[in-house]
Amino acid sequence: MEKGLRLENISKRYGTMTAVDSLTLTVPSGIVFGLLGPNGAGKTTTLEIIEGLRRPDEGHVWWNDMDVTRNPEHARSHFGMQLQTSAFFELLTVKETLELFHSLYRKRLSVGDLIERLDLTEKQNARVGGLSGGQQQRLALACALINDPEVVFLDEPSAGLDPQARRTLWDVILGLKSEGRTVVLTTHYMEEAEVLADRLAIIDHGHVLDEGTPRELIQRHMPAAVIELSRTVGVDASVDLPAVQRTENRDEMTILVSDHLENTLVGLVNWAQREGRELTGLTTRSATLEDVFLELTGRSLRE
């Protein structure tokens, strides 16, 4: 039997609203797996079903050969979980909180090591209620790791972190992978997904739109190059340019998705000369996950 997590046709409804819609997914052991999706896509619900926190209306979750849906307590002893919204006792200190969680498990990591690893040494005697959002986030991660888990679930672990803290977090997550743990995380940051995730699933309306390595996803959906230029130039869909798949406006920029970069560029330069326009802000790049995401969901990641 293949090692890892398997979700088979998971569905979850809240009243008439379908949060997760027969979702099927495989997460191999030992990798960092990213769940990407706009707000309300069903990421948290999916995670909570895998963690055994919610019962799916239909479907099954397997971990190795363990039925998580039927036996959540047992599975959970191998899992570490950072919930999207969770809080701790406000009047306990960071260290006391970790010690409390520490004493609830048999198999566990040392409190001191975790404090050091998550850069909480300075704050270990501070009350939880007085921590900044980023510090609380790190405490939550420390608590998720206290039972030395084989699979770590992180629901938007970098929400509210400054760039510095985010990089520290990335190091921690990559460290977890190098120790042989599986990490499943959700994120709204493309860069984060690109840096961390070995495989990704893009989710919307409760099902998987596509799944694969970041490179696979880009090649499958965005084989083309992207030309960006200032919106003030006035290029739009009515301008006939060779090899252009799509023209769209994003913020201040006009974006041209091209099958053939050279042909489009030549066409663009000719058009500019003919019309007497200046090509302000012109850049070219290969497609990113952000473009894939937009292509698949029609929505920006953080709208």
């Binding site: 926190l53 002893s77 979980m81 919930l83 919204t85 969770s86 809080a87 608590c143």
Partner: peptide, 11 residues
């Protein structure tokens, strides 16, 4: 605030 949920995922 989610304190109870947090303990729900512990043993």
């Amino acid at each position: 605030k989610g304190v109870l949920r947090r303990f729900q995922v512990t043993p």
